[in-house]
Design a protein around this nucleic acid. Structure first.
Lengths: 213, 213
DNA sequence: TAGATTGTTAATCGATTAACAATC
DNA sequence: TAGATTGTTAATCGATTAACAATC
């Protein structure tokens, strides 16, 4: 694959994770009718270093900022959405329709990031065939076929820890290239497959440690 | 506050977040009847650098490892739990009894980290007075008084973005010292209060970007 | 003893921040 | 013009990794 942009700028993981904050900040500004915004003021708002913000923005913006006035709010919003692929529709499945899975199914905010969950899978006979937030729960045995036939690229694992690796194996076999893992476990996946760990236990560790001083 | 340990070792945020992984790995080993374990084998299992694991362990372990055999599994489990404060009971409240809040209420795994959620709060009249997973939903107007009277130290925010800051203000006023924030927003809190952001949008950013190449 | 594993010190790597010239 | 803000280059900071002597 050739690089499409002239500048060889590339975002670090940290920068990537800051993007949703920038986007939110810009959208708030847009709502307030603000036309241009400086990196400095974004940095102040988000309590970040202004050079950091400038670098992050430089990597995704299609235009340069203007000294004194800054960046076009509207254009920057478009650029970030474009860069992040929020306009590209991405189908995902959830495996594990327990309480966490159900909460994610009910979260309509994901749509704004281009993610739509098209089906849920579980082994619990009582759940199979039902609908949760308008999304059908299918049998785990159908997972591989479903993903392959529908070209699913993202799998969300909300099963208990014990089953997570098995689920990941099936997802990978079915051609999924990114896994959002809510189980407290490092998944073994082949190179090229991204595992994004959403680690509630690690966050709890932070809280617990802080309380303890 | 004086330091209680002789060695002045202190864990970075990253190290802290690795602790639950170590703990899980050790508990798995314990179940398999393994008595001693080397940092090297933990590193292999978790795909981490072995020196990194050794440093992390050195910071929390009460004993030194023995060349050739490694560390006592049982003792290390005890040390990590002790260091992380998993044995100390911590009461928490959830504000926002939407689908995410409900999922967290139903998550019994938190108990093993010493966290128990004693009440939920919402502004929705229909929810107030009901019970979710055995936990009472109270009116948001009672939040401050409840936290103060029960010495709540941890607040979990699962409200929509618009209300998150207001909720944080109330929690801080009531004496809460750590906030687990699920809203996509940087909360403004006084120094000394920890905000742990659980940022689903940032994780989604990672997935989205990977799919886009 | 030999070798695996430990803990420590030094080197590397990468991200953030500071300094500064350019420009609207 | 003067000053706010830009983008870039260099310095700093912090975390991870490599090298190595010590030891069971």
């Amino acid at each position: 694959m050739k690089k499409t942009s002239e500048k060889e700028v590339y975002l670090t993981i940290q920068a990537l994770q800051r993007m949703p904050y920038y986007l939110h900040c810009l959208e708030k500004a847009e709502e307030e009718g603000i036309q241009t915004i400086s990196a400095t003021s974004i940095a102040n708002e988000l309590k970040l270093n202004d050079v950091l913000v400038r670098k992050d923005i430089a990597a995704v913006s299609s235009t340069q900022g203007k000294p004194k006035s800054g960046f076009q709010v509207e254009g920057l919003i478009r650029d970030i959405k474009e860069y992040m692929g929020y306009n590209d529709h991405k189908d995902a499945v959830i495996v594990g329709a327990g309480s966490l899975g159900r909460a994610l199914l009910g979260n309509s905010e994901f749509e704004q990031y281009g993610l739509s969950i098209t089906a849920a899978f579980d082994t619990n006979e009582e759940l199979i065939g039902t609908e949760i937030s308008g999304i059908r729960v299918l049998s785990f045995t159908e997972l591989e076929e479903y993903c392959r036939e529908n070209g699913i690229l993202i799998g969300i694992i909300t099963t208990p820890m014990e089953e997570a690796q098995k689920v990941a194996d099936v997802l990978v076999r079915a051609g999924v290239s990114a896994i959002w893992n809510f189980a407290l476990l490092r998944l073994n996946v082949p190179e090229g497959v991204l595992v994004q760990n959403e680690n509630l236990a690690s966050s709890l560790a932070m809280l617990s440690h802080h309380i303890n001083q």
